[in-house]
């Protein structure tokens, strides 16, 4: 059990990563999040682009927390007569990690089993032995479904079927980019619900970040916020030349750079110090590759900050985060809002 709220972070992480929610198809996972969030909000609604917005009313400044809820997936691009299909990625996949995975093909009448087949070494020629897996050669075997011929259509979505698991304080699961951040917001909302604060808080679970469609922008427009904290994931435990190594287990990163507002970032750092929340510094001199820019340049502009959860193996069928980092992120969010006057 978590030591500061009643919702178990590990269980939440496993739950929200178990529901497929590719860009444009986030309804089911957002429904699940709404079920939890309605206990901690005065109001929940959907934007025209499908993002979920939950509100804790207040009389003070308006602040929004943003996490995208979509994940990368595939589309069916070709169907062969004998029960095999080809794919193309929706979002930034590395095709090298999808051979020999189980997948779900999402048809209009439900999901069908598929497996990404791979030629056994016995049958490979010297040339095949050297091929780097790509969408031209990877294929999905759907022959096992008696009804594949009637059900599967070009354009159907395909998701990798991996199940998350916990190892001590570490969670390995699909789509932790960015469901880990969704969980951080849920935990923050739970914490704030018991607190008497000035700020009005908008919890935004947005759509279509992975394909650059940013459901976050319209949510920003609707909520008319003054402050916005975008929560996303960042590469943890990897050597990046010219940057300090961001470590998994040592707290969220607070981003400095032009996508963030310096005064607001200082506020967050002060809060982190006051409440003893461990954070790491991440310098982003250019574009952040997150929703932050979209939130920043909406209406009259928003004072933004970007907080990232260290994550390893980004965009792979198993990603990795530390539960403590998710909980620290939630605390940082909650107290950053609570300390706003």
């Amino acid at each position: 059990m978590s030591n500061f709220t009643s919702l178990d972070t590990k269980e939440l992480l496993l739950k929200v990563t178990s529901i497929p929610g590719p860009s444009g198809y986030e309804d089911e996972v957002l429904g699940e999040i709404e079920n939890v969030m309605k206990d901690y909000s005065n109001e929940c609604f959907r934007t025209p682009l499908g993002s979920l917005v939950c509100v804790k009313k207040g009389k003070g400044p308006k602040i929004g927390f943003f996490a995208h809820a979509d994940q990368i997936a595939f589309l069916v691009t070709k169907i062969y007569e004998d029960g095999f299909i080809r794919l193309s990625g929706v979002g930034g996949w590395d095709p090298k990690v999808i051979a020999s995975q189980k997948v779900w093909v999402h048809t209009k009448n439900g999901k069908l089993r598929g497996i990404v087949g791979f030629m056994p070494p016995h049958l490979q020629t010297t040339e095949e032995y050297k091929k780097v897996p790509d969408y031209d050669h990877l294929f999905v075997d759907v022959t096992m479904n008696p009804n594949w011929k009637e059900e599967i259509l070009i354009g159907d979505l395909v998701t990798v079927d991996t199940k998350g698991f916990v190892n001590g304080d570490i969670v390995f699961a699909p789509a932790l980019d960015n469901r880990a951040s969704c969980v951080a917001i849920i935990k923050a909302a739970e914490l704030l619900w018991r607190m008497n604060i000035d700020a009005e808080v908008y919890y935004v679970f947005s759509t279509q970040e992975e394909i650059g469609g940013s459901g976050a922008r319209s949510a920003t427009y609707i909520s008319e916020i003054e402050y916005g904290i975008v929560i996303d994931v960042t590469h943890g435990d990897e050597d990046l030349p010219g940057f300090p190594k961001i470590k998994i287990g040592e707290g969220p990163t607070v981003v400095v750079g032009p996508v963030t507002n310096r005064k607001f970032v200082e506020h967050i750092k002060t809060v982190a110090g006051k409440y003893n929340i461990r954070t790491q510094v991440e310098a982003i001199p250019g574009r952040s590759g997150t929703d932050t820019e979209d939130v920043q340049f909406t209406r009259n502009g928003v004072k933004t900050s970007l907080v990232s959860i260290p994550l390893r193996y980004m965009h792979n069928p198993y990603e990795k985060v530390c539960v403590k980092d998710v909980e620290d992120t939630a605390k940082l969010l909650a107290f950053s809002a609570a300390e706003l006057q």
């Binding site: 051979a99 980004m314 198993y318």
Partner: peptide
């Protein structure tokens, strides 16, 4: 090529994954 990002069990019951660097 078939082992990247797969769940494995080490010894009797230690679960892990074969990690692969983000694209």
């Amino acid at each position: 090529r078939v082992i990247l990002s797969k769940k494995v069990v080490v010894g009797k019951d230690v679960m892990g994954i074969i990690g692969y660097k983000a694209a």
